[in-house]
């Protein structure tokens, strides 16, 4: 999005010390993809949560300590899996390219 601030989603209002945040952005050819579906799978591959991306392509989860997988579904694209490690008190930023 033209003029958008580079970097992650604002964490205003989130108590990061108590949360294991996984957040990021879905892009296609460098442009943000809104309305994509990002799902969080646990260490066994089981579904844990799913969110649609915002108009700016952003998404966020509040996970727990450990290894997770982000699976992204979007119209006219193959699903994309990305591994991510989360820990309480930190923010894992992930950019997903379709």
């Amino acid at each position: 999005m033209c003029g958008a601030t580079e970097g992650g989603l604002s964490l205003a209002g989130v108590d990061v010390t108590k949360e294991a945040v996984i957040q990021g952005k879905v892009v296609r050819g460098g442009d943000p993809v809104g309305g994509a579906y990002v799902r969080l799978l646990d260490r066994t591959g089981e579904f844990t949560a799913e969110v649609p991306t915002s108009a700016t392509g952003h998404f966020r989860f509040f996970a727990g300590d450990g290894d997770w997988t982000l699976r992204t579904l979007a119209p006219k694209a193959e699903p994309v899996d990305r591994k991510v490690r989360a820990a309480v008190g930190s923010v894992a930023e992930v950019e997903i390219s379709l």
């Binding site: 989130v14 108590d15 108590k18 949360e19 969080l40 646990d42 066994t44 089981e46 579904f47 844990t48 949560a49 799913e50 969110v51 966020r60 989860f61 509040f62 996970a63 727990g64």
Partner: peptide, 19 residues
């Protein structure tokens, strides 16, 4: 619920704050 909520490792679905 998801396995982590069932087991007590999470308190809410992971798109919501856990507190």
């Amino acid at each position: 619920r998801s396995p982590d909520e069932y087991a007590g490792r999470l308190l809410a679905p992971a798109h919501l704050p856990q507190e």
